[in-house]
């Protein structure tokens, strides 16, 4: 298999993989089975609700998805660029030299089954690590898919991930076992 084809497959899967099993949710929305890979840049809002912390941690910025690479650039309230590639994760603060970020010690959102594997798209990985189920469509007609960890070890940290959208993934909600929750809202993509 060529590398380009592999990359295209990977990038597309976010968003694709989740829905291959699901039936079309709404005639107005695209059939998730037919979602195609899309590269480009999109605004995001990330909100973390942490137990014991009264204020949600809200950050905004621009996510750029390219072949084998995601740049997660937080612009508010800090200027920090996190770059995720197969070779690892780096972080640059205020345009400084990127520093390698070590693995997160068992956090369910890192590694091959993590959130960003999903964003760069790896259908096989998602199927291997998660049970994928279709949930009732939302009021606005968006499809809604739930990923539940298969492995007991992962389930101890991660309860489930809900992914929703119409023409592509627009919302991701990660529910952790300790009650912490993270929501990511993705804006329109621009190339």
């Amino acid at each position: 298999m060529g590398r380009a084809a592999d990359l295209a497959r990977k990038v597309g899967a976010v968003l694709v993989a989740t829905f291959l099993i699901a039936a079309p949710a709404n005639a107005a929305c695209i059939d998730p089975n037919n979602i195609r890979a899309e590269y480009g840049s999109m605004p995001f809002t990330q909100t973390r609700h942490l137990n014991g912390i009264t204020r949600p941690l809200i950050s905004r910025g621009q996510a750029t998805i390219a072949a084998q690479r995601v740049d997660w650039h937080v612009t508010t309230p800090v200027n920090a660029l996190t770059t995720i590639t197969p070779s690892g994760i780096t972080q640059s603060i205020d345009g400084g030299t990127p520093q390698r970020v070590n693995g997160g010690g068992g956090d369910a959102l890192l590694g091959s089954a993590g959130l960003f594997d999903m964003l760069v798209g790896n259908f096989d990985a998602l199927q291997q690590h998660y049970t994928i189920t279709q949930r009732p469509a939302r009021a606005n007609g968006d499809w809604n898919i739930r990923l539940t960890p298969r492995a007991a070890g992962m389930a101890r940290a991660l309860t489930h991930i809900d992914v929703a959208g119409c023409e592509r993934v627009a919302e991701v909600e990660v529910q952790q076992a300790n009650g912490d929750r993270m929501e990511i809202n993705l804006g329109p993509i621009s190339r």
Partner: peptide
């Protein structure tokens, strides 16, 4: 920066 890093394994 770590606080808003989407892959930082932080908790309340």
């Amino acid at each position: 920066a770590m606080l808003y890093n989407p892959v930082a394994p932080i908790s309340g």
